[in-house]
Each structure stands twice: as C-alpha cells, then as structure tokens.
Design a protein around this nucleic acid. Sequence first.
DNA 1: TATGCTATTATGTTCATACATAACAATCTG
DNA 2: CAGATTGTTATGTATGAACATAATAGCATA
Lengths: 233, 233
Amino acid sequence: MSKTEFRNWQSVHEEVLRRINAREWKPGQMIPNEADLALEFGCARATVNRALREIAETGLLERRRKAGTRVTEQPLARATLDIPVIRQEVEARGQRYQHRLMKRDLTVPPSAVSAAMATDPDAPLLHLIALHLADARPYAFEDRWINPEAAPGAKDEAFTETSGNEWLLLHTPYTHGEIAFSAANATEDEADALACAEGAALLVLDRMTWNKDLSVTKVRLVFSEGHQLRAIL
Amino acid sequence: MSKTEFRNWQSVHEEVLRRINAREWKPGQMIPNEADLALEFGCARATVNRALREIAETGLLERRRKAGTRVTEQPLARATLDIPVIRQEVEARGQRYQHRLMKRDLTVPPSAVSAAMATDPDAPLLHLIALHLADARPYAFEDRWINPEAAPGAKDEAFTETSGNEWLLLHTPYTHGEIAFSAANATEDEADALACAEGAALLVLDRMTWNKDLSVTKVRLVFSEGHQLRAIL
DNA sequence: TATGCTATTATGTTCATACATAACAATCTG
DNA sequence: CAGATTGTTATGTATGAACATAATAGCATA
C-alpha cells in the first residue's frame, strides 16, 4: 500500500474510481466501510463520505445503511441533458436567433390536451404556434399550450418578441415536469415550416411542466432535419 | 419572520426552493450569504451549504466565491436520462427479452468509424449487428464496433447469449463517453429487422465510450417505431 | 494613469465529534 | 418455532471551528 495520502474528497473520488476501473474492486463486490477507508486514506470519514456519495449519484456505487457500499453490477449509463432555451442554444453557436409567431389563440383545446394538462375540458387555453430560426433558417417548430390559470400574465403577452419558453421562464415557476424524446415523420405543416420533405424523420421533444397541482404548459418541439441532442457520459 | 427552525438540509433545501418559486428571491437576484441564512434558519453554515450546493447542481442557483449566490435568470432545464441496459428495460416492463445476433465479424472498419474511434485505419475491429426483442417483437436494432485493443476478451466471446452492451459492462470499464439522440428514416435493412415501413421515423441513439485515450466501443441503436425516451425534470 | 499589493469577503473544504436512522443479527418470549 | 424485542453496525447528517481559495475593492506606488 502506498503512503500517498488523500487529503481532499476529489482525490479520494479519483482513487475510488481508479480502483473500480482497475477492477481492484469488482462489480458486485462490497468495498471497505467509510471508517476503514478514512483510516487508509488518512482523512476524515466525512471526506470519504462526500467522495462516495458523489460516485453513488452517478450510479457506479450502491450504498445502503448497515449493509455497506458495493460496486454496481450493471451500472446504467446516466446522462445529464441540458435542455437550453433555444435562443441561447442558437446564439451559443454564433448564429442569429429569430422567433416567428405563427398563431396565437385562446381556444378550448382538444380533449387530449385538456386531459393531459388536467384542466377543465371547457376552459380555453392559450395556444401558440411558432417557428424558431437560426441565421434565418428554420431550427425548430413549436406547438405550445399554456394554462392561463397557472400563468396569469400570459393572456396579455403578445409573444411576438419573446418566445413562450423565455416568457414562462421569467414569469412562471414550475415545481416539476416531464420530458420525452421521440421521432416522427414530418407532417405537411411541419415540412412546410421547417423546409424539409414531408415524411422526413424529425426529432421531437415533448415537455410538460407543473406548478404543484397546476399544469403550466405543454409543448411539442419538432427540430429541423438532422438535429442532434448531445450529452456527455 | 417565522420562528420555524430548519434543522436539516432537506428542509432548508425545500424552503429555499419555495422562496425562489414564490419569487421572494427573484431571478437574477442575490440571496443572503450562507452565514446569514444559517443564522436565520437556526442551523449550521455547513447545512445551508449542503442545501444550496444541491440546488446549484440543478442549475437554479449560481454560486461564485466572494460574489455570493444568485438565482439563475434563465435556468436551462436539466434532465437526467437513465439509459438502461436494454435487457433490464424490457424485463422491467414485464416482457421477455431476447437477443438475436445477426452478424459478427472482425473486419477493417470504414474510415469514418476508425477516425471517430481514433484507431489505426488498417486495424480490424469487431463488428456486431444484433436485434433486441421484447416478447418476440423487435425492440431495437444495434450496430456496434468494438475495439479489441480496449476489450481484450471480446475476440473470444460469441455474443450469442450476452449482448455487446452487457458483456462490455461486465468486462470493460470506461472512463467517459458521449451520447447523441437523433431521428432517422428507416433504411431497408432497419425496416426489415424492425418490421416497420421503409422511411418510418425512428429514434436513434449513438454512443461512444472511451477508456482514457482508448476508444472502447461505438454503437448505433435504432429503436422500433414509436419508441419514446422519457425523463423527469 | 496604470499597476501591483493587500485586506476583505463569501464560498469551498476539512476535521472531530456526536447523534440519527435503517437494516440486519441475535436473542428472548410465548 | 413464530414473532417480537433488542443490540449492533454502516451509512446519513449536524455542528463548530478552522483554514483554503477565489474574487473583489481599495490603497499605494511608480
């Protein structure tokens, strides 16, 4: 055993990853307890705890009280996706962002929408259809429903300058939400708006956010052809 | 000011979120420093630190030394995607998992592959084509390249019983990787394997993993029609 | 005026200690 | 032997104190 000491949690973190990686601690195997590791590493148990907790968050270690800590047998890959505001995403590439509002209506939504958003089937919602452009070329097609009950000021906002997303971020907090990615063939409208062939495979992002029990918004973003969503493992 | 005390980091976490949510602390605004909050909450600074750190990780707070902590103006949605081993994903739904190896070759890859994987253009790589099935119906189509240099035992593995992913997870660690989602129209082969129409929009996952400087594997997973990838915000 | 030094400040981290909590093991009780 | 009780153990968390570090502001100097 080397006499090197690991006096901060990053170096403990690193060393533990190294041991898992080098199979010194094999998948499924228990590792020594915190107190022992602290002794071995020459640091406080809190420091070991911090390091192990971080690793456990990535899914590479499994920890249970009393039972101890073991190396995960089949760690699932965990990717953190940052879903940026489209304006920022476009501008980060050095392109010019534009937003074109194509429709703005206060209408009673299809029952599928009111059901998903848990709103009164007869209550009108704000419906926005918009196109996001990067350097004047279509970037994403947006179809959004906003619950005016959850977003009071929305009725008075034109959404010509500010996109729905940006406005909501600034004016309406949310407590939780869900997001789903899928692929869809371009409909006639989408093909038209995004300047691609009808039937082209497009990446679709469906998102719905809630403020406690109240649905805030339900949005479907259809990205232009070839769009990729990247993440680091 | 209420006399309620917040004596653990979860309750501090909750209270801080509530204040951000209720706009008591507005987007872009500085919040009191840790010491003051600790005093107000009646707990130790470390406890406040823990709570604020967790929130900062979700992107809702921005912290800088000396500058202090502020509420993020335009928080980007951050979703953590769990990309499970397909077997587990299928079995978790209560369906029967099967894996059908369609091709297994040790060949010199196209230059695009060797370039992406940073391997010698003339070095043969292990090429697997396989189909994942759920309840005997096609689930995902897999096209994988494995670098034998990074995965020594791979040459001796048949991959008929165990899928590439499962085998690699158990035998070849990786230090980092990247992942990308996109949509593609089904090619003839894919349509055939996945029992869908040619041209159907399919969700595609491209992944590449590395063990330090050495590429381990590059895989393209094409999911059957209608597949969704979900995450919670 | 420009530049470099210094003090200040807020977050970042370590540490020893203590207690809380979940889970398992052993033991007791009917 | 079944079921409840108690003990033990490893992780989880709280605390105060101390020092580290980065960023800033203000001051001093050339």
